Computed example of a mutant assay.
Amino acid sequence: MIDFEKLGKLYLGRLFNPETGEPSEVPVLYDSKDLTTHAVCVGMTGSGKTGLCLTLLEEAAIDGIPALCIDPKGDLGNLMLTFPELRASDFQPWIDPAEAERQGRSVAEQAEAVSTLWRDGLAKWGQDGSRIARFREAVDIGIYTPGSSAGRQLRVLESFDPPPDDIDDDAQRDQIIGAVSGLLALIGIDPDPVNSKEHILLSNILSQAWSEGESVDLGELVRSISAPPFDRIGVMDLESFYPAPDRQKLAMRINGVLASPGFSAWLQGEPLDIQRLLWTEDGKPRITILSIAHLSEPERMFFVSTLL
């Protein structure tokens, strides 16, 4: 068996020999230190981009590296379909009866075929069920569905908390812009940080609260729109920039979204705590899948802006 169990080296397969059209015996070991900044995976449809990224996540997990994954398509849940024994009975609950019928097989026969495919495929790359077991033992995997109870629920928005004291001014401004942009997108308002009066007003409310080290909960935010804790924005007085009747309309619009039954799902579940999403309480690394395939585009923007 190929020796690819080297800490910090991620096993991606074996070098392909274009002359023979077959993989060679030389393993491809990717240095995890090369994944400390940004990367992009590019390829044609069906070329294996998702498979490669799943492999990277699995290999990193075996080395004790956690991952926080935003899943816009719903593909990453396959990381939980790991069966060390590779028994047909393990696969059978996940077999699509329609696919089995297209193959001219019963569900049980299709499960046996898939089990054999996995077993032979792993063996081809010098692996077996013991490596699946190692992966399962190394990491905790969870699927969260923000704004829905289909998976683990995540309490995304309860308050806008100030960033740590050691964060610089530019980073704090970016956080304010992201938080306000996400909220405005959720209620259908163009989140332009320069030209949107709504964005400028909300940004100033958050900026003042955060400068004093205070959180702003949703109720306080709505009330502050009607009665902001300042009387000027830039060089203009508040009423000239954004008259009270218009501010009241904005407050009512946001309050209407917050009061809707569908929004309650955003306020339930585990808190949006990055450390808890990366590590269990006993220090075990996690692969946290944040599935957003069910969300509308404004909801996706709201969630991703809040997360980042």
Results as ranks from 00 to 15, higher is better:
Leu154Pro: 10
Pro229Tyr: 02
Val194Arg: 09
Leu183Lys: 03
Trp279Lys: 04
Ala61Thr: 03
Ile254His: 09
Leu278Lys: 07
Trp266Asp: 12
Leu15Lys: 15
Cys41Ser: 11
Asp237Glu: 10
Phe263Gly: 14
Lys284Val: 14
Asp34Pro: 00
Gly256Val: 06
Asp75Ile: 01
Glu112Ala: 06
Pro229Lys: 06
Ala133His: 08
Leu202Met: 07
Asp166Val: 04
Gln92Pro: 03
Trp279Met: 05
Ile205Leu: 14
Val235Leu: 08
Asn195Tyr: 10
Gln172Trp: 04
Pro261Tyr: 13
Ile132Cys: 08
Gln208Tyr: 04
Ile62Arg: 04
Asp165Leu: 02
Ser149Gly: 15
Gly13Met: 09
Ala209Cys: 05
Lys197Leu: 11
Arg232Tyr: 03
Ala259Trp: 00
Arg286Glu: 09
Lys33Ser: 11
Pro72Ser: 11
Arg232Phe: 00
Ala88Cys: 08
Gln175Asn: 05
Val222Gln: 11
Pro164Phe: 04
Pro146Met: 13
Pro164Ser: 04
Asn17Glu: 12
Asp168Leu: 00
Pro271Trp: 12
Ile177Gln: 04
Ser226Trp: 01
Phe135Ile: 09
Leu290Thr: 07
Phe302Gly: 13
Trp94Cys: 00
Ile177Val: 14
Gly178Ile: 07
Ala100Arg: 05
Phe135Tyr: 15
Gly283His: 10
Leu117Gln: 09
Ala113Val: 07
Asp96Val: 03
Ile167Met: 12
Ser203Ala: 10
Ala39Ser: 05
Ala98Pro: 02
Glu299Gln: 15
Phe91Gln: 09
Phe135Leu: 15
Trp210Val: 06
Gly13His: 10
Pro243Thr: 11
Pro146His: 13
Met44His: 04
Pro271Phe: 14
Gly283Trp: 13
Val42Thr: 08
Pro229Arg: 04
Lys249Pro: 09
Val26Met: 07
Pro146Arg: 13
Gln268Ser: 15
Ile254Gly: 09
Ser291Phe: 10
Phe83Thr: 00
Tyr30Asp: 00
Ser47Glu: 04
Val42Ile: 15
Ile65Asp: 01
Arg253Leu: 15
Gln248Ser: 12
Gly283Ile: 06
Pro229Ser: 05
Leu206Pro: 12
Ile225Gln: 05
Asp34Ile: 02
Val40Trp: 03
Ser305Asn: 15
Gly213Glu: 13
Trp94Ile: 00
Arg247Asn: 14
Leu238Cys: 10
Leu76Ser: 14
Leu238Ala: 10
Trp210Glu: 03
Leu258Asp: 13
Gly269Cys: 08
Arg276Leu: 09
Ala265Asn: 14
Gly129Cys: 05
Ile177His: 05
Val180Pro: 07
Asp169Cys: 05
Ala113Met: 02
Pro228Trp: 01
Gly121His: 04
Ser130His: 06
Thr55Val: 04
Phe160Asp: 12
Asn78Ser: 14
Leu202Tyr: 07
Leu272Asn: 11
